[in-house]
């Protein structure tokens, strides 16, 4: 009974904060409501005996991701009026997607069409630790896939660095030694030219006059 009450309180809090998050005008408030949403859903996970997930949600999302999010929101100058444009235009599509998602959720809940196995959740006593169970599974039977996943992340890091890092040579730093040692002939080349005859067209003439007879070439 108490558990149900707690569930309803947190569900109500979750729905309310999620709704406020997308309707509130101030982006900082929106981010704070998102944090509240995460907190309430982690409380619901605790009720489902998924302590590890609840802890990770708070530590990773609330602790790290949301803090970064807040920084971004506060540091960027976001044009709010531009973001609110086209609400009416996209509304029908949004409603359609929402209806589709609601329908598919209904189908999943009423699954049985496909003859899938549906077990009710097994209840454990208070001294049962979900975290240590996960750890045991992860570091024994699933050690091999777990290590491969680590290797995949390493490859992602190597690939990202290899594809974006530029060698020091291509950076545009100034070299004072070269700047001091430069000679005038490195930068400027004077070319002797014959005087060109003026054309009959008066416009041509004025154009020719403005031309300079030296060609300037920058050394690379």
């Amino acid at each position: 009974m108490i558990e149900q009450t707690v569930f309803y309180i947190f569900s109500a809090l979750l729905l309310m904060s999620a709704g406020l998050m997308i309707t509130v005008r101030n982006p900082v408030f929106a981010a704070l409501f998102l944090i509240l949403t995460f907190f309430s859903s982690s409380a619901i996970w605790l009720l489902l005996e998924a302590e590890f997930l609840a802890i990770t949600l708070v530590v990773v999302y609330v602790g790290a991701v949301m803090v970064l999010f807040m920084f971004v929101v506060m540091m960027l100058d976001i044009n709010l009026s531009a973001m609110r444009e086209g609400f009416a235009k996209y509304l029908p599509i949004g409603v359609l997607v929402a209806i589709l998602m609601a329908l598919s959720m209904g189908l999943v809940i009423n699954a049985g069409e496909f003859g899938l196995v549906s077990d009710s959740i097994q209840r454990h006593s208070a001294d049962y630790s979900n975290t240590s169970e996960l750890g045991l599974a992860l570091y024994t039977n699933y050690l091999y896939p777990f290590e491969i996943a680590g290797a995949i992340l390493l490859v992602a890091i190597i690939a990202a660095i290899a594809l974006t890092m530029r060698s020091p040579r291509s950076t545009k730093t100034q070299k004072p030694g070269n700047q001091v040692a430069v000679k005038s002939t490195d930068r400027l080349r004077i070319v002797k030219m014959k005087v060109e005859k003026p054309a009959d067209d008066p416009e041509e003439v004025s154009k020719k006059d403005s031309e300079v007879t030296t060609v300037v070439k920058e050394s690379p």
Binding site: Y142, Y144, P145, I148, A151, I152, V155, A156, A159
Partner: peptide, 16 residues
């Protein structure tokens, strides 16, 4: 699981 992870490790390296 190992089929999928092996494939991803191979593909990611090749993309890069």
């Amino acid at each position: 699981l190992t089929v999928y992870l092996g494939l991803e490790l191979l593909s990611l390296s090749l993309y890069a």
